[in-house]
Amino acid sequence: KTRLGRYHEEEIEELFELFSNYPYEELIVHPRVQTDYYKGNPRLDAFAGIYQKNEKPLIYNGDIFTKEDYENISKRFPKIDGVMLGRGVLANPGLLSVIHGQELPSLEVWGAFLERLYQDFTENAVNEEKALFKLKEIWCYLRYSFPKMDIWNTKIKRCQNLKEYKMAVEELLEHYPEIPNGAFGKLDEEEK
């Protein structure tokens, strides 16, 4: 897996030459340079250059948050061998289902999922503070799955302990309307 380079997208030429000296099985490309972090849009023209040259399986990685994002990439690069879903799945754990034409998870499924996250983080963390930190960290993304409620800013971000966290999540599930298909929000520009 690689980005286009550290500072400039032209660095991919050197990387591509380096990779060709090794028997790699597939190439996963996130079409940004390292200094972009996740800001701005993926550099699709630079990815297109790799797409045309590469002879091994090629995986696209970057900014797939909706079914439409997936379809646009698949249409522009029909011979890619796959896409890697990263932050898009964190923001919308039902994204893969939506891409495959299935319904979004019900609130019951969400409840079970959020409870499982809670259990796993609290069982594996060194202490309550670390567990709470990890839960808050994942909510930086999960909040986009609940665009009609500002649960992140009003409750979860302000939680001081796991009891407050549990109460916030329970309140969300109790008061949140059923999620209509496609209601998930995209990450804000600063979140990318």
Rank of each mutant, 00 (worst) to 15 (best):
T122H: 12
F133W: 13
L95E: 01
K136L: 12
G101F: 08
E137F: 12
I138K: 10
A125W: 07
I138L: 11
L96P: 00
D120Y: 06
H100A: 06
F133M: 13
D120A: 09
H100R: 09
E115G: 13
G101D: 03
K130M: 15
E137I: 11
E123D: 10
K136R: 14
K136T: 11
F133R: 13
P93Q: 00
N124I: 07
E137N: 12
I99E: 02
G111W: 02
Q102R: 05
L114M: 12
S97W: 00
S97R: 02
I99H: 03
L95V: 01
F113N: 00
E128W: 13
K130W: 15
V109D: 09
V126E: 11
F121Q: 10
W110D: 04
F121V: 06
A131Y: 08
K136W: 12
L117C: 12
Q102F: 04
F121W: 11
Y118A: 14
Y118T: 15
G94L: 00
E108F: 01
E115Q: 15
L135V: 04
Y118E: 15
E128C: 14
S106N: 03
E129S: 11
L104S: 04
K136P: 10
L107M: 06
G111T: 07
L114R: 08
V98G: 02
G101P: 01
N124D: 08
S106K: 03
E128N: 14
W110Q: 03
F121D: 10
L132V: 07
K130Y: 14
A125E: 08
S97Q: 05
P93L: 00
H100P: 03
A112P: 12
K130F: 14
S97Y: 06
I138W: 10
A131S: 10
V109R: 11
L107E: 02
W110E: 03
S97E: 02
V109P: 08
N127P: 03
F133Y: 14
E103Y: 05
L114I: 12
N124T: 08
Q119L: 09
K134C: 11
G111R: 08
P93D: 01
G101S: 05
S106D: 05
F113P: 00
N124G: 06
H100F: 07
A112H: 15
D120L: 10
S97I: 01
A112G: 15
L104T: 05
V109K: 12
T122Q: 12
G94T: 01
V98H: 01
I138Q: 09
R116S: 10
E137Y: 13
P93N: 02
S106P: 04
L104I: 07
L132F: 05
G94D: 03
I99Y: 03
L135M: 05
N124Y: 04
Y118Q: 15
P105M: 02
E123N: 11
P93R: 01
K130D: 14
V98I: 01
Q119W: 06
P105C: 00
S106V: 06
L96R: 03
E103M: 01
F113C: 04
E128H: 14
L132S: 04
L117Q: 13
N127W: 08
Y118S: 14
G111Q: 08
R116Y: 08
L96H: 02
F133K: 13
L95Q: 02
A112L: 15
